[in-house]
Write a protein that binds this DNA or RNA. Structure first.
Lengths: 328, 328
DNA sequence: CTGAAAGCGCTTACAG
DNA sequence: CTGAAAGCGCTTACAG
């Protein structure tokens, strides 16, 4: 019972081509204002919605952008997804996510081809995921951040994580702290290389500022955090970089319990700006990200790719616009 | 450069129809084994993948199932998504999620129509979401759990939440606890009606077992939890139902700090079975859900809907198969 | 300025 | 048992 463009044309008393021209603002066509208005009104009155399958078949490309997201999306990733969604919606594209893990590359490829994505966003996939070349072979555009000076095994997510931690550290260094503790879980990242690279970079930054930089591995349990803080008693660090806001909140709590003043005796900074962070007392100092620039870059890249399928499938180097949200 | 079914037919030396029959196992067709094998081999060798847009245009229905997920998916929801994804993949359908919030129903409808979903899963949407009737008008099947004796304003997610809490409570009642505390945040659910209904049902259960049932509102901060536990000092409850595992862990910690033994003096039960729950000491007693039955029901309903578009768009009453995972 | 027509790649009656 | 052909609803050269 769906209304077709032919139906609109018939009712409006014009040809199907004219309907298409009007509705798509096809450049290089000169449609009289009256015809234009009539078509628009008829389409609206009839509740016309273009058949995406027919359009995709004809144009050769879908209108969905697929963002594979391994595992549950935390608060930060969720923000990124929302930003991308907004940017793509503004360009008449739809972002959908897939968090499934598939048994085989074949199965995964079949599943993804069923949604006919205009592009697949490769921001979080391991760089050596075998589905990526398979997708390209199947004719699906894969959009990935441009290779830069970073090692190729880092995903865009890894790069973001590293930048966020650098922002924490430089905030603390800028404020004059020279004995800094970095607190993280024993298993921080699936890929050891990413982890090692991050720590190296942070250490280098600290050394350049003649600051001490010590790494502490600790589980996120009240007992473990308290035990860690106890070991600091004699010679507490001036400042603590926490791997995320959950850790930061636990550490602040344990420090206060131990009779230390935050931030007077020890400064603590988290990462993620989780909504909860502003409710705790004292409210947390943390690193917040603004993904609108990144999302806009992604949407622009997709649009460009659709306009010119031969164009480079590289996302612009993401500017993460990380800002420190200071404790109120 | 994509391989078409016509190409496969040409190479295999058969007609396009035969290729379609073989690849789709079209019932009521008798294809000789040799022809069949030849087609299969050719398709595989050529790396043929059917064009989903063409297929959708012809058959009138897509192969994607859209699951709108408002907000970041927590651990439990993530499990449900994975289960649905698995069940649908097994039936040659792809589950995609959309967590965007749209400015208008029009915008949302346009966005969703771009992915041509075979069905939209209504498990978490507010029952009165205006997009639902709009979707139906646009010809998109909306799959929702069958209306039962529950009030119509409860989403399937609400029903699940209530069942999970009932499971907690009956576990504690079965173990003989008769003074039970329910600890929850001040703002538990967006919809007051859902909240009120839940509390009523729990109170009724407790009363039926001649148990005391008290509700405590408390933020998830160490200070708030500790303060709450302190108020219990004189007359501690026998058992605590926590709104989720995060609360449960915080409560266990505070109880132990206060010199009470868990579960000897006070039993505590959470909900969600978050991965972290099994790492804390003592490991948490919590309610875990098995979504495979639900997911299978959903996948079956979608399949049935595709086979017979006139069939009811109701999901079977979900059996949640909630199990208590006891502290090790 | 507007319309008639081709064709995207499938599936499926229908005819052999 | 297999093939020729129609047609799903669009967009877009092309012809007026």
């Amino acid at each position: 019972v769906a209304v077709t463009s032919a139906e609109v044309a018939r009712v409006a008393g014009v040809s199907q081509a004219t309907v298409s021209y009007v509705l798509n603002d096809t450049p290089g066509q000169t449609i009289s204002a009256t015809t234009r208005d009539r078509v628009l009104k008829t389409a609206h009155d009839l509740g016309y919605r273009p058949n995406a399958a027919a359009r995709s078949l004809r144009t050769g490309r879908g209108e969905a952008v697929l963002f594979p997201v391994p595992g549950p999306a935390g608060h930060v990733l969720s923000q990124l997804i929302d930003a991308c969604s907004d940017a793509l919606t503004a360009r008449d594209l739809t972002l959908v996510t897939d968090q499934a893990s598939y048994g085989s590359v074949e199965e995964q490829l079949d599943a993804w081809l069923r949604v006919r994505p205009a592009a697949v966003l490769d921001l979080l996939l391991p760089h050596d995921d075998p589905v990526l070349p398979a997708l390209r072979t199947a004719g699906v555009a894969v959009l990935a951040p441009s290779a830069s000076d970073e090692p190729s095994w880092e995903s865009a997510g890894d790069v973001f994580a590293i930048e966020a931690r650098k922002t924490q550290l430089s905030y603390l260094l800028d404020r004059g702290h020279r004995r800094i503790a970095f607190v993280r879980p024993a298993r921080m990242h699936a890929d050891k290389r990413v982890e090692r690279n991050l720590l190296q970079q942070l250490k280098r930054m600290a050394t350049a500022s003649r600051a001490e930089f010590n790494v502490f591995e600790c589980d996120l349990t009240p007992d473990a955090i308290r035990a860690l803080v106890r070991t600091w008693k004699k010679k507490a660090p001036h400042a603590v970089c926490a791997i995320n806001d959950d850790y930061a909140i636990a550490i602040v709590t344990a420090l206060i319990d131990a009779g230390l003043r935050v931030p007077h005796d020890v400064a603590v900074i988290g990462v993620d700006d989780i909504p909860f962070a502003s409710y705790v007392t004292p409210s947390l100092t943390t690193v917040a990200a603004d993904f609108t620039t990144l999302a806009d870059g992604i949407a622009t890249a997709v649009t460009q790719l659709l306009a010119d399928p031969a164009s480079r499938r590289e996302l612009p180097r993401p500017e993460h616009r990380l800002v420190v949200r200071e404790s109120a």
